[in-house]
Design a protein around this nucleic acid. Structure first.
Length: 489
RNA sequence: GGUCUCGUGGCCGAGUGGCUAGGCAGUGGUCUGCAAAACCAUCCACAGCGGUUCGAAUCCGCUCGAGACCUCCA
């Protein structure tokens, strides 16, 4: 069996065989959220994508150390000196301590990640918890002669760095082209070059998030924390760094430059980038005003939504697209995903109850090979899911007696489903909502009365029961073994 | 303007030189007192125009269209 994972490395622009630095250990770093407001669905997609990566690496037996940061130090709103820290701006608006904002949205972020059934990172470091380390790396970069101080702020010298190492190696940019494309902004005169980026910014009197440093009171630059925290916990060279496509430039490019300037090495061996969630073809983002919050999606309380969708349906919807492709969001697409998901999960559940026979028409090993082939090809979850639908069809055929399955095959398939659906894709059966013991008991009584009426061919009574329940949004489903019910959404 | 990516059937979305992607919808059927549900089967495609090739949706060129990054962004 081929259990050799290949993944697409942005650095090389091609699929590469994955070989960890120190097997069986794997270091995985993912850029986390800035906790100054609610995470929207687009943000969630990236974390769900890398949850798949994390889960599959673990499934393959790797000992993963998954680090995902919380950006709580705030970023500048723009590149000008007058720029304002997002978190402190929000804090002023809401009349709260900055760390209150951070706490509130961090807790909310954790809750959303839990609802989407993502595994928690092994380490979740915060930028504010690593100010000392950030000051430390700035000093290293200055010692290397690749940063300079102006008025209590420190800037990275991109042109000088570019003489030793190519700045733009990840995103395919050329410094000359970047210079020609740079707009001149007011208040940038501190920098020697427009491409230079801040490692440390002097705090203006009104700036409320501030720390002491050798250069006075200030706060760390936007790209520094990831360089610091990834290498602190995973080593100066580590395996995988992930993040959204929109972080490729300049954020990840700057990370590379900072690490190389400080340590003389390229820290990351495999760069992985997840693609954007779009709405009507356009990137979902807060600034464009087309973002949807997870809660809005669950409840359907949003002008773009016809109704709500369960978090597991949303996760399944995302898993049906490859992580490197954009995924277009729409009511129709979600409804399609919901139906498919319910059908798939229902079939997989039937597997447990299939009667066993002496021989088997089903080859569990063939499914296993296909499942691994799909996931080993750069985490191709859509292909995996298509194979799962094939399996579902096979299970249904067996349930109707058209195919035979023996005990060994059944156990093997149950294990496969457990591994790939539950562990790797992270999908769970949707718990029936609102079906308390009382409701179940009442419905059993009602359906029993209806069954008697039907047995007596008393169609007017049975149909009246059905219609009246329908008026209460309860759908009765007649099956071979009696009727079941569910609450219509 | 620069750099890059992409254009697949009604919708979402894989694939990538010759072999069915898959899901949803549609259509036909099984089941059912009827309906729904469920299950089975099945139609519909590779933006356009050239080129390479025995053969291209897949490679190359051009045209048109869309998007991302270049400013905080997952």
């Amino acid at each position: 069996m081929d259990t050799q994972l290949h993944l697409y490395n942005t650095l090389s622009g091609s699929k590469e065989k994955f070989e960890p630095l120190n097997p069986p250990f794997v270091g995985l770093y993912v850029c986390g959220p800035t906790v100054y407001s609610d995470v929207h669905l687009g943000n969630c997609r990236t974390f769900i994508s890398f949850d798949l990566v994390n889960r599959y690496l673990r499934h393959l037996g790797y000992k993963v150390r998954y680090v995902r940061n919380i950006t709580d130090a705030g970023h500048l709103e723009n590149d000008a000196d007058e720029g304002e820290d997002k978190i402190s701006k929000r804090a002023r608006i809401e009349q709260l301590e900055p760390m209150e904002i951070v706490q509130q949205y961090t807790l909310d972020f954790h809750e959303k990640m839990r609802v989407f059934n993502t595994l928690a990172p092994d380490i979740e470091p915060t930028a504010t918890g690593h100010i000392v380390e950030q000051i430390d790396i700035i000093q290293k970069i200055m010692e290397a002669g690749l940063a300079y101080e102006v008025n209590g702020s420190i800037y990275f010298d991109v042109l000088k760095y570019n003489e030793q190492e190519r700045y733009g190696m990840l995103s395919g940019r050329k410094v000359e082209e970047l210079i020609s494309g740079t707009r001149t902004l007011d208040g940038q005169d501190e920098k020697r070059n427009a491409l230079d980026f801040a490692l440390w910014k002097k705090a203006s009197p009104s700036h409320i998030m501030r720390w002491n440093s050798p250069w006075g009171k200030g706060f760390p630059g936007w790209h520094l924390e990831c360089s610091v925290m990834s290498t602190k916990y995973l080593g100066e060279t580590f395996d995988i760094h992930g993040g959204g496509m929109d972080l490729k430039f300049p954020h990840h490019e700057c990370e590379i430059a900072q690490n190389h300037a400080a340590h003389g090495t390229h820290a990351v061996r495999y760069w992985l980038h997840g693609n954007m969630l779009t709405f009507e073809g356009t990137k979902m983002s807060k600034s464009l005003g087309n973002s949807i919050l997870p809660d809005e999606l669950f409840t359907g309380d949003h002008k773009l939504l016809n109704r709500g969708f369960h978090p597991m349906v949303v996760r399944f919807f995302m898993m049906q697209a490859h992580y490197r492709s954009t995924l277009d969001f729409s009511n129709e697409a979600l409804e399609a995903a919901e139906k498919g998901y319910q059908r798939l999960m229902a079939s997989l559940k039937i597997l447990e109850t299939l009667p066993e026979t002496e021989q088997s028409d089903i080859d569990a090993g063939a499914y296993e090979a296909k499942f691994y082939a799909a996931m080993n090809d750069d985490f191709n979850s859509p292909i995996l899911i298509s194979h799962l639908f094939d399996l579902a069809k096979t299970i249904n055929s067996a349930a109707e007696g058209r195919l035979k399955i023996d005990a060994t095959t059944k156990v093997a398939l149950l294990e496969l489903v457990e591994s790939f659906v539950i562990d790797v894709l992270g999908l769970q059966a949707i718990e029936e909502s609102g079906d308390s013991d009382l409701a179940n008991g009442l419905m059993n009584v009602i359906l029993d009365v209806r069954a008697r009426a039907r047995a007596n061919k008393d169609w007017s009574t049975s149909d009246a029961i059905r219609d009246q329940l329908a008026a209460l949004d309860i759908v009765v489903k007649d099956g071979k073994d009696g009727a079941t019910w569910e609450v219509k959404k």
